[in-house]
Computed example of a mutant assay.
Amino acid sequence: MIEKNSTLVTIEKIKSFAIALVGAGIFSMGSTYFSEQASYRVPRILLPVYEIFGNIGLAVGMLILGAGLMYFAYKKFTKNEGKSMYLLVFLVIAVLGFYGIIFSTSSKSTSIEDIKASIEEGQKKTQDEIMNTEKPSLDNDLANKYLDKLEALEKKFEKAINETDKTKFDACEKEYDTVTAIEFGNVVKEISTMPEYKDFAMYNAKILDKIQVFRSHKW
């Protein structure tokens, strides 16, 4: 039984490295997509994002997906008694290795500074677009109700902080987890393939940014 468990643990560790490698590749490649490319390698799960938001949306999506996979691999590895330092070193080497491959196969030389500037430019452009967006009128009751609830939650957070009411603040935190984890997921399932999803996503990001300011309040 001990030998069998040891084998299973080893297999899970190997899976962790495989997932980490995929995540590192997606993250590295995504970071270069803030500037326009002749062609893009789009993960199937991010195809709707690319079709709606273009290369900037694809870049952000790949960064999030890649980082998520690397984090999942890290948690899986440490859960199976793996030393975190081993996987962290592997991730650093993997990311640098993928950058080396990308640069060596690119038709033009790209420096780390170019990538950093491209990422910052793309982030600023996206942030400006988010902050200037207005609440959309969507042809979906579930999405409209979600946005109404999110706006109401923003006001609840503000009121809790203004009244210095930690109990109300904690209640807002619980509601936030439910709204953003469950209700948001239900909305995405319904409208993620619709053209109006971009307007929904932009306004959702705007309100969430405001809520995050309240959530970072120090008591």
Rank of each mutant, 00 (worst) to 15 (best):
L142I: 10
L153V: 03
A160T: 08
L147Q: 03
L142T: 11
D148P: 05
L142C: 04
K145A: 14
E151S: 07
K145N: 15
Q123F: 12
N140V: 01
T133C: 09
M131D: 14
E158T: 09
Q127S: 14
T164H: 12
S137T: 13
E129S: 12
K168Y: 09
S137I: 11
K166E: 13
A143D: 01
E151C: 09
E163M: 08
K135I: 10
A171L: 14
T164L: 13
A171M: 11
N132W: 02
K145L: 10
N162H: 09
D141E: 14
L150G: 02
N140C: 07
M131F: 11
N140L: 04
E121R: 03
N140K: 04
N144P: 04
K149I: 04
K155R: 09
L150E: 09
S137C: 06
N162E: 12
D148S: 08
M131H: 09
C172H: 07
K159E: 09
T167R: 08
E163V: 01
N132R: 12
T126G: 00
T126A: 11
Q123D: 01
L150M: 08
L147K: 02
I130M: 08
C172R: 01
A143F: 03
S137F: 07
T164S: 15
E129P: 00
K125Y: 11
N162Y: 07
N132M: 13
D170Y: 11
Y146K: 01
K149N: 12
L138M: 05
K155Y: 09
E158G: 06
L147C: 03
Q127F: 12
K156T: 07
K168R: 10
T133S: 14
I161R: 02
A171G: 06
A160W: 01
K155M: 09
L142G: 08
N132Y: 02
I161V: 11
A160L: 06
E163L: 12
C172E: 05
D141M: 11
E163N: 15
D139H: 12
Q127I: 13
N132I: 00
I119S: 04
D170Q: 13
N162R: 09
E129N: 11
D170P: 05
E154R: 11
A171P: 05
I130A: 07
E163P: 02
T167V: 12
T126P: 00
I130P: 09
L153Q: 01
K125M: 09
D139C: 07
D165A: 05
E158Y: 06
F157W: 04
K124E: 13
E134A: 14
K145R: 12
E158W: 01
G122M: 03
D139S: 15
D148R: 06
D141W: 07
N144H: 00
K124P: 00
T164P: 04
A160F: 03
K135C: 10
K155T: 10
K168S: 15
T167G: 02
L150T: 05
Q123R: 10
N144E: 08
L153N: 03
F169I: 07
K156N: 14
D141P: 04
Y146G: 02
K149V: 05
E151M: 12
N140F: 03
L142E: 10
E154S: 10
D165C: 02
L150Y: 02
L150C: 04
D141Q: 15
D128V: 00
E163G: 05
A171Q: 13
D141A: 14
Q123P: 00
K168F: 07
Q127D: 14
F157S: 02
E151Q: 12
K145P: 02
K159S: 12
G122D: 02
M131Y: 08
